[in-house]
Design a protein around this nucleic acid. Structure first.
Length: 488
RNA sequence: CGGGGCGUGGCGUAGUCCGGUAGCGCACUCGGCUGGGGGCCGAGGGGUCGCAGGUUCAAAUCCUGUCGCCCCGACCA
């Protein structure tokens, strides 16, 4: 078999690129740092969207849409926020082109009076709108989400993980009380955790970011952190408690029950197409993409095998029966009857594309009332009866979904260590993985560790590892262990 | 912004050092044999070698400039 995908062990980042290429998830675009998301990739995103959107609706949120362009002046309203995003904003300065001899150029006469920023995130324009919507406590809470694209002018990009333009959702909520806004922030964090585990089969650690990793403009940034196969951590989603920062910056007040005018409390939360990168690096192998059934564009592919027209017909009829039953059970299935490819070729292709279950049907199977069923995740093949196939395959899909999570969790656990010795930390961080250790809570120590080991504090975990101890670097007291890793 | 690499049919590349008919694999078209893990044989079509200058009888190859992309680091989701 011609090997088109680099082995993970040889070159992990080349492997990652090869998987994306072979699974036809995305292409590099003519513009540096941007990507074309191909149908296979976009279909995964659509599945993610559908599941998340349902979860958002179930927790009381509504979708809305705010503009792509933000007046430059808005960005300067919240001091921390400006600082965080100023260096990576695309700025629109002109409104038209004009024809010249060999093409077009910017028409200098079309210079804008106020330049526009292509949104790197929408807090500012949304809070500007909220000011007009909120007067009374009766107008609260506002629970809005938007599905959108954003642009961040990144220096270094990587397909799905960090592109200059990416797709995401951003929730923006406004509340009458601090407690309610904090509860919202934590609730959405939990939604993300649930989604990552139940749909992506990607276990995550939840926690709160240190000041240096906090979202610009937030009081607290909560996150879900996943561990990739190469031992690097990936921030897979964030949920921010914004306090009254944006309410103050955009003068959003409400009159409370007690008649007092008060600033509104806020949260924002988001996940992006980066999740697809996380999905790839959590499950895929040297043969290509491996997808959890709940997010697979096609859950079952049926490949017919035949030598002549007679066999072809018999197989097709048999397959049609199976496909009807699978569809009836709510399973998405594709019949791959392309004439121009041989079965072996199709097997390899569907494997590269991560189709969770492959069913091969040949004359022998028709004869014996069987199916050959192969699992993408374990590459196991077995023969099972046509009778009850829809049920048994539905069950198999569930098994695959569950076992993928179990395996990923086991891998994460095996790559997670605890240490009290900085010497030990420096040594073991080389192997990748998560390390729980004590930290004195200062930015100086955090920076020192980063400089010496390239590891950062991924989060301060919410529940676990709360026992007090002493900072592994300075020996100063520490209330709890924090989670370290090298990260994407 | 630093370091490295690469631009040659749709894709992947050889050729570049040492200038002289642009080659190979995959894909594509046609015909046939095939078909339970990326099949085989035969016949075809397709490239102004990233771009712009220069040197030369002659440039993918040498010189100058320029554009772009990828990878690795520093910054970020």
């Amino acid at each position: 078999m011609a090997k088109r995908i680099t082995n993970r062990a040889d070159d992990y980042s080349q492997w990652y690129l090869d998987v994306i290429k072979e699974a036809k998830l995305a292409d590099h675009s003519p513009v540096r740092g941007c990507m074309v998301i191909r149908p296979n990739g976009f279909s995964i995103w659509e599945k993610m969207k559908a599941a998340l959107d349902t979860m958002f609706k179930e927790t009381g949120h509504e979708n809305a849409y705010f503009p792509l362009f933000i007046p430059k002046s808005f960005l300067s309203r919240e001091a921390q926020h400006v600082e965080g995003f100023a260096k990576e904003c695309a700025v629109i300065t002109h409104s038209r082109l004009k024809s010249v001899d060999n093409g077009v150029e910017v028409d200098p006469e079309s210079k804008l009076e106020e330049e526009l920023i292509v949104r790197p995130t929408s807090e500012t324009i949304i809070w500007d709108a909220y000011r007009g919507w909120i007067q009374s406590y009766r107008d609260l809470p506002i629970l809005i989400n938007q599905w959108a694209n954003v642009v961040r002018w990144e220096m270094r990009t990587r397909l799905f993980l960090r592109t200059m333009e990416f797709l995401w959702q951003e929730g923006h909520t406004a509340h009458a009380t601090e407690q309610e806004a904090v509860e919202e922030t934590l609730q959405m964090l939990e939604v993300y955790r649930t989604f990552a585990e139940e749909y992506m089969a990607m276990p995550v650690i939840t926690g709160v970011k240190t000041e240096s990793e906090r979202f610009a403009g937030a009081v607290d940034t909560y996150c879900i952190e996943a561990l990739m196969q190469d031992g690097k951590a990936l921030q897979a989603g964030t949920s921010h408690f914004l306090g009254q920062n944006f309410a103050k910056a955009f003068d959003v007040k409400f009159q409370d029950r007690d008649g007092e005018h008060k600033y509104v409390w806020a949260s924002s939360w988001g996940v992006s197409t980066r999740l697809i990168g996380g999905l790839i690096m959590t499950h895929s192998d040297d043969n290509g993409l491996v997808l959890p059934p709940k997010l697979a564009p096609v859950q079952v592919v049926v490949v017919p095998i035949y030598k002549n027209d007679e066999e072809k017909l018999a197989v097709a009829e048999y397959a049609a029966e199976l496909i009807t039953r699978l569809k009836h059970s709510g399973i998405s299935v594709k019949y791959d009857d392309r004439e121009n490819y041989k079965p072996g070729w199709k097997f390899a292709e569907h494997e590269a594309q991560g189709v969770p279950v492959r069913v091969a049907i040949g004359p022998r199977d028709v004869q014996n009332g069987n199916l050959e069923v192969a699992r993408r995740d374990t590459l196991e093949k077995n023969i099972r009866p046509m009778e009850g196939a829809a049920e048994s395959i539905a069950e198999l899909l569930e098994t695959i979904q569950n076992e993928m999570l179990q395996r990923a969790r086991q891998r994460m656990n095996e790559a997670t260590r605890i240490t009290d010795s900085y010497h030990d930390f420096k040594r073991t961080i080389e192997d990748g993985g998560f390390i729980y250790a004590h930290w004195d809570g200062t930015a100086d120590t955090e920076t020192l560790i980063k400089e010496e080991t390239k590891a950062t504090i991924r989060c301060i975990p919410l529940d676990d590892f709360a026992e007090p101890g002493h900072c592994m670097v300075t020996g100063k007291p520490s209330a709890r262990r924090v989670l370290f890793a090298r990260s994407y």
